[in-house]
């Protein structure tokens, strides 16, 4: 038994060495994740990281034949820390937007979902620029939702938070009239939970291509094409071999990938 384990380890090592380039082979691939964004990523009581992003990241590592280390990082420093080489890629539900592309390169999307407002179920206003005028709306700092609020809802009073969990805390306490975030995150991480009682989505999907982008991708440092293409290949591989579907089913009852991108894109 032990011998077989050893043999597997050696085989894996040889394989990794053979596949990876000389510079990469021995090095662990470090991946930045957030850990405060259920169901995409959260931290268990014992400190282990769990969630859709985490599972996808680990599956991609396995496909690439690389040993990975997950590095937890607060959202508002997640791109700066990538640029500072604290890790080599970000798998944290990051939407592919033009503004971010100025700082980092993105892989193809690994999922896509719309943004929605959440407010008290008996809220007397609508999720429109007129309805939210003068209302206090919370968003997580540095997200696509901040961009969207500043662009489309300049009349609302915007409050910025470090984590999405804090936004929900203040929504419950009544400091916020509404909040905007990813709809799945709001559904699974808040509305379904006991503390989300009495709250509901306000209006339908919110979308602006400039702010929201084409979906969530994996960010790498500019010019790190080797890693970016390896991720793209791995995303394709887990999509075709059923790994993605398995992870998807663990968290969601529907296909979170969204539409297939047009061929050749």
């Amino acid at each position: 038994m032990r011998l077989r384990k050893l043999a597997t380890a050696i085989a894996a090592g040889v394989l990794a060495f053979g596949l990876g380039t000389a510079a990469q082979a021995g090095e662990k691939l470090r991946i930045g994740v957030e850990g405060a964004y259920p169901p995409f990523s959260w931290k268990e009581a014992d400190g282990t990281l769990k969630g859709f992003d985490i599972d996808v990241a680990l599956a991609l590592c396995e496909k690439m034949g690389r040993e990975c280390e997950l590095v937890e990082q607060d959202w508002d420093g997640i791109i700066p820390a990538l640029l500072a080489k604290k890790y080599d890629a970000i798998v944290a539900s990051m939407s592919i937007t033009e503004e971010r592309k100025k700082r980092v390169d993105f892989t193809k999307k690994y999922y896509h979902e719309p943004a929605k407002f959440v407010a008290r179920a008996d809220a007397k206003f609508e999720g429109t620029p007129d309805g939210l005028k003068g209302k206090v709306v919370g968003v997580q700092r540095g997200t696509i939702h901040q961009c969207y609020m500043e662009k489309i809802f300049p009349g609302a009073e915007l409050k910025l938070y470090g984590t999405q969990e804090e936004v929900f805390l203040d929504l419950v306490s009544g400091r916020l009239d509404a909040q905007i975030s990813s709809s799945i995150q709001a559904q699974e991480g808040f509305l379904q939970e006991p503390e989300g009682k009495g709250f509901a989505f306000l209006g339908g999907d919110q979308f602006d291509l400039e702010c929201h982008g084409e979906g969530a991708g994996i960010a790498v440092r500019k010019g790190d094409n080797e890693l970016r293409l390896a991720f793209n290949k791995a995303i394709k591989a887990i999509r075709t071999d059923g790994t993605y579907t398995k992870i998807n089913a663990k968290y969601f009852e529907f296909d979170i990938y969204g539409e297939e991108p047009p061929p050749g894109s």
């Binding site: 700066p80 700092r141 540095g142």
Partner: peptide, 19 residues
């Protein structure tokens, strides 16, 4: 959520993804 001096710096960093 208060925009104090550091809050202003963080807002600027977050808006343009600066380090």
């Amino acid at each position: 959520t208060i925009v104090d001096i550091l809050g202003a710096g963080r807002t600027l960093n977050a808006k343009y993804y600066l380090a």
